Every structure is written in C-alpha cells, then in structure tokens.
Computed example of a mutant assay.
Amino acid sequence: MSEAAKKRPEFRNIHITDILTYRLPPAAIVSILHRISGALMFLLLPFIIWMFDKSVSSEISFGQFSAAFSSGLWILPGWFIKLVVLALMWAYLHHLIAGLRHLYMDATHKLSKEFGKSTAVTTLVLSVALTVILGAKLFGLY
C-alpha cells in the first residue's frame, strides 16, 4: 500500500477519553497557558492589590506583609502564601512573554508552522526558567 493510499486518522470530535493520547502542538499549549495565566492574574487581583497596599503603606504594614511569607496569613501557612506568589510570578512572566510573542508575530507576519513552534518552545522555556530563578529567590535559596 502506498503512502498516498494510506488514510490518516481523522479527529473531529475528541472524546474525553482521547485527551490523554492527543498531542497538542507547542503553540496550542502556549495559547492555552496564556489564557490560564490571564485568568489566574485576574482572579488573584484582590490578593495582588492587598500585597501592594501592605508593602508600601507604612513600616508596620510592610512588617505584616513580610510576616505573611514567614508565619502565614489568617489560616494559611507561609509556604502556601509563597506558592501562591510563585504561581503569580509564573502567570505574569508567561503572560508577558506569550503576549510579546503574539505581538511580534502580528507585527512581522511570521506565521509559518516552524516559526510558531520555535517561538512557542522558547516562550515555555523562558517563562519556566525565569520562574525557577525568581522562585529560588522567593524561597531563600540565594
């Protein structure tokens, strides 16, 4: 049987059981994560505003802000607050880098499949690498 005669599998409606076997291209993963990071930043906006207010209002409020990372906040332990801030760092970095990627592709009209894949992988690597570096600082590793 020749290559032309082989029928490729056709996926029209992906069932929930096919999600584990379906491989998304890197550009699709970056696009989905761009939406997730935007939603995460929007949902945690009250926490971001609270952190900003506590960090700049006075020396006493800055002490409360710093204590939230070591001793916790309300019923939440300090390590959980650090994880939330780490998630916010990733969301901001990923959203920024993916947004710049989209703006660059729109401005230059570089819409080839190869360019999309390479910039998507670059976006994923940069956002995770910067998050790891800043997360190490957050958790006091340097």
Rank of each mutant, 00 (worst) to 15 (best):
L44W: 12
L45V: 00
F52L: 12
I60Y: 06
A67F: 02
L40Q: 05
S70Y: 10
L44N: 10
F52T: 11
Q64C: 06
A68P: 03
M41I: 09
S61N: 03
Q64S: 14
F42Y: 04
S57H: 07
S66G: 01
V56L: 15
P46W: 07
V56T: 15
S70C: 03
L45G: 02
F65V: 11
L44E: 01
S61A: 06
W50Y: 15
M51V: 08
F65I: 09
M51L: 10
M41V: 05
W50A: 10
S55Q: 13
F62K: 12
F47D: 09
W50E: 08
L40K: 03
A68V: 03
D53S: 12
E59M: 07
V56Y: 15
F62I: 08
A68S: 15
L44R: 00
F52P: 04
G63R: 11
S61L: 02
S70T: 12
F42I: 11
M51S: 13
E59L: 11
S66N: 11
I48L: 09
M41F: 05
F47N: 01
D53Q: 14
A68E: 06
F47V: 01
G63T: 08
F65D: 01
L45N: 02
L43W: 09
M51C: 13
I49Y: 00
F47C: 01
F42V: 14
F69R: 00
F65S: 06
A67Y: 13
F69N: 04
L44D: 09
A68C: 09
F52N: 09
F42L: 14
F62N: 14
P46K: 09
F47I: 00
L45A: 06
A67G: 13
G63Q: 11
S58Y: 00
F52R: 02
W50D: 05
S57C: 03
S66V: 02
K54H: 14
S58I: 02
K54Y: 14
L44H: 07
M41S: 03
A67E: 13
M51D: 14
W50F: 15
S61R: 06
F62V: 02
I60W: 10
S57N: 11
M51T: 10
S58Q: 00
Q64I: 13
G63M: 13
F62D: 04
S70N: 12
I60T: 14
L45T: 01
S55K: 15
L43N: 06
F52H: 05
S70Q: 12
S55V: 11
P46T: 02
S58P: 01
F69K: 02
F52A: 09
L45E: 00
G63C: 04
G63I: 04
S55L: 15
I49V: 15
A67N: 12
M51R: 12
I49W: 07
P46R: 05
A68F: 04
F69C: 03
